[in-house]
Amino acid sequence: MHRILVIDDEESLVKNIEDFLKAKGYEVFASLDGNSGIELLKTQNVDLLILDLHLKDGPSGIQILRVAKMVKPDLKVVMFTGFGEEEEARTSCMSLGANAFLCKPTSLKDLTITIEDLLEVK
C-alpha cells in the first residue's frame, strides 16, 4: 500500500485528490502549507509527493522540493502548477530531482496514470 502526500494550498483540490486516491486504494496524507507538509514528510514514510509549485505562504514549491529530496532522496515527486508551461520552471524542477511536471487542470485520471507509472518503477 503506497503512501502519498499532497501539499497544495487549494482546499477543494486537495480534498478531491485525497478522495480519489483513497478510493483507488492509496493511503493519503494532505497538507495545505509547506511547513506542516514537511513535518508530515519527516514523520510518515511517504512514497510519493504531489507538490504545488506555487504556494501562497511559507516555503515555496522549489524550497519544499529541495528539502523533500534531502529528507528522502528516493522520494517520487510530481510537481503540479497552475501557471502553464514554463520551460524554466520545468527544467529547474527536473534538475532538482522531480519526476513529473503536470499543468493544472489535469484530469484525475491522468494524474493517477502518472502516479501509477512512477510507483510501478519502484
Partner: peptide
Amino acid sequence: NNRLVAISSSAEL
C-alpha cells in the same frame, strides 16, 4: 486554473 481543477476533479470524482 485552480478553479478549473477544482471543478473538473469534482466532476471526475
